[in-house]
């Protein structure tokens, strides 16, 4: 595996939701930067791929968008979690934890082999 990883859509959606939950209402650029930073610059994404994902989440009702003004006085579209979005985040986090836990058991060599 290389240092910088390609990411797929489902995970991206989860990261977006988590980012908005953590930082509150945020614009697309902010979300993209935050995801990169959080991954310790291990993830390199084309910022453009974020927008179809945001649109999809909005169409599904997990987030809503609103035009507002950024910290640097730039006009920007801010995304905000809805109640359905929070639920989705909680559920998907749980599912992700389970999946990784199972995978971890598979991939880690076990000590107590008989």
């Amino acid at each position: 595996m290389g240092n910088k990883t390609e990411i797929w859509q489902g995970t991206l959606a989860l990261m977006i939701l988590k980012t908005i939950e953590t930082l509150g209402p945020l614009h697309g650029y902010g979300i993209a930067r935050r995801i990169e930073q959080t991954s310790g610059d291990q993830l390199s994404l084309n910022y453009g791929t974020l927008y179809p994902s945001l649109l999809k989440l909005e169409q599904e009702g997990s987030i809503v968008s609103e035009w507002g003004v950024s910290d640097n006085n730039r006009k920007a579209k801010f995304y905000k979690l809805t109640r359905a979005g929070r639920k989705q985040l909680a559920r998907e986090t749980r599912e992700w934890d389970q999946t990784t836990a199972i995978l971890a058991k598979f991939l880690t060599p076990t000590e107590d082999r008989t």
Partner: peptide, 28 residues
């Protein structure tokens, strides 16, 4: 999405504006 088919002009300017604002913030 079906609504999107018919409300195309509004959508188009929305996309353009959002990308424009994204680029501005990045350039800043």
């Amino acid at each position: 999405r079906l609504r999107g088919v018919f409300a195309k002009d509004a959508l188009e300017s929305d996309i353009a504006q959002e990308i424009e604002s994204h680029l501005q913030m990045h350039i800043d």
